[in-house]
């Protein structure tokens, strides 16, 4: 449990081992009196093949950081990178394509399009790009999350846990550079929650995927390789390979 200083400024071309990176990322909402600083100059690297959890109290800027990293929101200043691409320089259309081709998402709820079957939801980003899925990879992902016999069902016919499994499968299906998960277990019972976290863990261990997860749940965070803790728009701490108890103990100091 050591407090680390932010890493040194990155080289111009990020190294190939970094999946995503934020450099002096600053996000300010509103102006003058009502101004709120959501991110106050965050610099951080997400290494390939690593599972990172971002924690922090409400309003700490963890969601904003994730949204900016994922190309869903724009920074006020600073830059964010996905692999070698500087997102701050992209136009809306290219940003959309980047999300489609190189980013995977798992949200807390309402992850799926209700009119499409589970299978169609899984391959949605690929379909949007007009690409055919890699069949063997698809089968592998589907069997990993255990959805084999549920592929033709619509979301309304699936349980919450099954819906999240579909969402995880979708995030994996396009082999993105990085997967962002926003409280993926927030709406699930503990059993389903464990399942999902285990799938994410396997995706990192077995398939060398990169995952960044925002969570409130110390148990969920304990599945990560490292835990970043945000407060007031800054990274205030980093835990490497923590246990759930480590996280709980640490978070207690914030009184979250």
């Amino acid at each position: 449990m050591t407090t680390t200083t932010p890493p040194p400024p990155p080289p111009a071309a990020p190294s190939t081992t970094v999946a995503a990176r934020a450099v002096d990322a600053t996000k300010v909402y509103g102006e003058g009196e009502t101004q709120v600083v959501a991110l106050a100059g965050v610099t951080v690297d997400f290494t390939r093949g690593q599972f990172t959890a971002i924690m922090g109290p409400s309003g700490s800027g963890k969601s904003t950081l994730m949204h900016c990293l994922a190309g869903l929101d724009e920074l006020t200043s600073g830059s964010v990178w996905i692999e070698g691409t500087n997102l701050t320089e992209l136009r809306e259309k290219d940003l959309t394509k980047l999300r489609r081709d190189r980013v995977g998402f798992v949200f807390q709820a309402f992850n799926l399009i209700p009119t499409l079957t589970a299978e169609e939801n899984i391959v949605l980003p690929l379909s949007l790009a007009g690409n055919d899925p890699d069949r063997s990879w698809f089968d592998q992902v589907v069997s990993t999350v255990g959805l084999g016999n549920r592929l033709q069902h619509r979301p309304s016919e699936l349980s919450g846990g099954q819906q999240q499994r579909v969402a995880v499968a979708r995030a994996l299906a396009s082999k993105p550079a990085i997967i962002f998960a926003d409280e993926p277990t927030g709406n699930l019972d503990s059993h389903s929650s464990t399942e999902i976290l285990e799938f994410m863990r396997r995706a990192v261990d077995d398939y060398h995927q990169t995952i960044v997860m925002v969570t409130h749940d110390p148990r969920a965070a304990s599945y990560a390789d490292r835990v970043l803790v945000l407060a007031d728009g800054q990274i205030v701490n980093e835990l490497i390979d923590p246990s759930a108890d480590d996280v709980v103990d640490f978070m207690k100091t914030f009184g979250d």
Binding site: L72, E92, K97, L98, D101, F105, I113, L128, A129, R170
Partner: peptide
């Protein structure tokens, strides 16, 4: 919400 999801998944405006 659904449209937002589609856009997040990478559906372009013209799509």
């Amino acid at each position: 919400r659904e449209l937002g999801l589609l856009r997040a998944m990478g559906m372009t405006r013209s799509q």
